[in-house]
Design a protein around this nucleic acid. Structure first.
Lengths: 332, 332
DNA sequence: ACCGTTTGTGTAATCGTGTGCACAATGTAT
DNA sequence: ATACATTGTGCACACGATTACACAAACGGT
């Protein structure tokens, strides 16, 4: 690393330094190329000396393959998705793929943001967010070739999806709560109308129906602690419910705090509170939440599997189904 | 959006469709270009019809400007940094810059990862992680032109830095704890030896020294809840301390839980616990942590300010200093 | 009618790599 | 010794946009 040169050295310049043509430089950096091993070693040595690395932008232009992956997420800090994001980023990095984050929360024009990313010719798109319509995503990215991985199943050859089934686990949880004597159930949604929210609510609604019960109240938060806290106060005080199923774990923690602090009610004796997602924080001693948990590793394995199938150009849209499990804590 | 064509349409093809040259297409998409407004309108109409958008990869190659920003972070889920990450991503997106995430935690070869990102000719690099040596970052990115924004001040023309000063706030916090009668202090580090960890510890050590005290124990965690929990048990039981200053808020919550659960001690009467960062979760009702807080918005404002200076090609390395404040909860 | 300026467009080079094709050099089989 | 397969390298073009330069048309002022 001799050069403190400001500008990055180019393939052609290095060629001159090594006394070869720029084509040979390129071959030195392509593992399966016809090139003399002596030449390659010499070139790599000179390259190292001058800090040369092939320009990925130029390579992408030529290859028609950027090795960039767009991750469409609601928010970065939000623990609900953060663990999956973290896992996925690691897996991508291990495959030499670089993630570009598209963050939807509070952003006025998500579509424009997605269009911007699509101009970078990303190879794949993974949609975690339930705030974008899958049809929009397809319209924007269909011109480039990526397969979109998403929760929401969509009948389109460019979309692979991961389906989540939590019906059985929801049934287990409802069963326990009902046997504990709770009678008045409320559901606290995270968004006012997203696909995933409706699906999750249905699992619990079905379990209740099976026992001749139904949700007596339905509130709407925004996946945040504060909204969980605030809505729980209303549900408990105004609607007199004794069990709250929350759209995610963070709201559940907020609801638990509200019950304890504002109304002096404790879980699981006075009321039952259930979260969803199974984030690490839910298992912390101070939370100890009962939650409908998704196996994050299995989820990301599935995403990577779909990406690999796409890379291998295996035809057709693919779909993988995962089942949730109940994780028991002291809140229900 | 008529075309369900798989392949993205190119500038030259659109030129043929609109009956102009590809140069004119380009001008239609550059705001300040000499082009007839009639021609531009016609081109934009045809472009919209065929879903054309200029290829950002090709544009970057020509421009020598990728509009990509590398964010080097420890982890994505980690709340310590997540709020800043979230804010920064939003600000970047508003400026039409796309963030590439480089995640260092658990990754064997951070250097290789950074080298990979540098081949994408990122315009800027922001280092949040305290796990990478700033000198390594400079060596890897100096060939491309970006300025690096980092906590760690480094005397290099390519590095701008943001300095954090928490001495005064640490003094306030120690003052209160000492007046409350606590005598035996411990520090719980988040890493075994990072630059930022040493700095933070010094603020508190100085405040203690001013009062004729010193840390009686020094433990090492990994910024996680579990490590906070585990180390706190040892500190309280073996070392009999009655005040623990933690390297971040998450470990502080773990320590508080350990005190309560394992040893039956409560804050702030039996022991004092202090966090650092001022994450949102610290203010939740169930946590209510006393913490040395950084103003996240101000921090990100500073990062964006440095990036803007770099874009405007204002010479020289820059540095901005921010001061922390004490945020009072019921744990100290 | 003439000249200078402004405006709009096309031509061609450029950004840095990858790769098909041609060709020389070397090795191998008869 | 001849025919043929293999290996290593250079030339030139492609990838998809931007932009300096040239030039034609239109325009305004005398």
């Amino acid at each position: 690393m001799s050069g403190m040169s400001r500008r990055r050295i180019t393939s052609k310049e290095l060629a001159k330094l090594a006394g070869v043509s720029s084509a040979t430089i390129s071959r030195a950096f392509s593992p399966d190329s016809r090139i003399g091993s002596a030449t390659r070693d010499r070139i790599l040595a000179v390259a190292r000396e001058h800090g040369y690395q092939p320009n990925a932008i130029a390579r992408s232009l030529n290859n028609q393959r950027s090795r960039l992956v767009a991750l469409v997420v609601n928010a970065i800090g939000n623990p609900c998705e953060a663990e999956e994001q973290q896992l996925l980023v690691h897996r991508l990095q291990a495959r030499q793929l670089l993630p570009i984050i598209l963050c939807c929360a509070d952003h006025s024009d998500r579509l424009q943001l997605m269009r911007l990313a699509s101009t970078y010719q990303v190879d794949h798109v993974v949609v975690f967010s339930d705030m974008v319509s899958m049809q929009d995503a397809v319209d924007i990215f269909h011109t480039t070739k990526p397969i979109i991985v998403s929760f929401e199943p969509l009948d389109n050859e460019n979309v692979s999806s991961i389906r989540i089934d939590g019906a059985e686990a929801a049934d287990e949880i409802i069963d326990k709560i009902v046997r504990d004597g709770k009678k008045r159930f409320a559901y606290l949604s995270g968004t006012n109308s997203s696909w995933i929210d409706k699906l999750r609510r249905k699992w619990f609604a079905d379990a209740l129906a099976k026992r001749g019960l139904a949700f007596e109240a339905h509130a709407f938060g925004d996946y945040s602690y504060d909204s969980g806290f605030k809505e729980a106060v209303l549900l408990l005080h105004r609607d007199k419910v004794d069990a709250i199923i929350c759209g995610n774990d963070v709201m559940a923690i907020g609801a638990r705090d509200a019950a304890r602090r504002v109304l002096g009610k404790n879980t699981p004796d006075d009321i039952a509170i259930v979260g969803q997602d199974g984030i690490a924080m839910a298992a912390w001693d101070c939370n100890d939440l009962t939650t409908l948990s998704l196996n994050h590793v299995a989820f990301i394995d599935a995403v990577v599997e779909l990406i690999e199938r796409h890379d291998a150009e295996i035809e057709g849209p693919h779909s993988i189904t995962l089942t949730c499990t109940a994780r028991w804590g002291s809140t229900a």
